[in-house]
Amino acid sequence: MNKQTETLPDQWDAPARFLHWVSAIWVLGLMGLGLAMVNLVKASGLKFDLYQLHKSYGFLFGLVLIVRLTWKFIFHRRKISNRGFLHQAAIINHNLMLLLLLTLIASGYVVTCFSIIPIPIHVFGWNVPSLLSPDMLMEQGAISVHHMIAFALLALVLVHIGAALFHHFILKDKTLIRMLK
C-alpha cells in the first residue's frame, strides 16, 4: 500500500472542474444527439444534418479529450492513499470512462472513414482527411462497435453519477462538492 498520503483539496482546480463539466455536457449531448438521429428523426434532410453535427462535435470532443488527458496525466498527477474498495472502484471507473471515450471517438472516426458515401467530417471549414479505404462490411462493424462502446460508457457514467450522489447524500463527504465549487 502506498504510504504516501495526500489530503484531497476542498475543491479541484478550475481547469480540472471546467474540463470535467464541459466533457460531461458534451458527451451527454453527443449521446442524446446520437440516439435522436438514429432512432427518432425520420426526415432524411434533418437526419443528415444531425449526423454531420454529431460527427463534427464528436471530432471536436476528441480534441477536448486530449487536452483533458494531458491536464490529468501531466499536470495533475497525485498519489492518494488507497482508501479501500470504493476508492479502487472509482479509479477503475474513471480510467474505464476515459478509455471508452477515446475508443468511442476513434470508432466514430473509423465509421466515417469506412463509409462508402464520401462525407468527410467537417470542422470549422476543414474536412478531416480519411485514413482508411471505404469498406461496407467494415463500416457496419465499426458502427456496431461505436454503439456498443456508447452504451457501455453510458452505463459507467450512470455508475459515476450514482457514486457522486452516494458520496454526497450517504457518506456526506466533499467528493461532489470538490467538483462543483
Binding site: S44, L46, D49, P118
Partner: peptide, 15 residues
C-alpha cells in the same frame, strides 16, 4: 432541394 443544405451540397457534388 432535399430539406438540408448540407445534403443538397453532397447531392450536387461530384459524388
Amino acid at each position: 432541394d432535399v430539406g438540408s443544405d448540407l445534403l443538397a451540397s453532397l447531392i450536387r457534388s461530384s459524388a
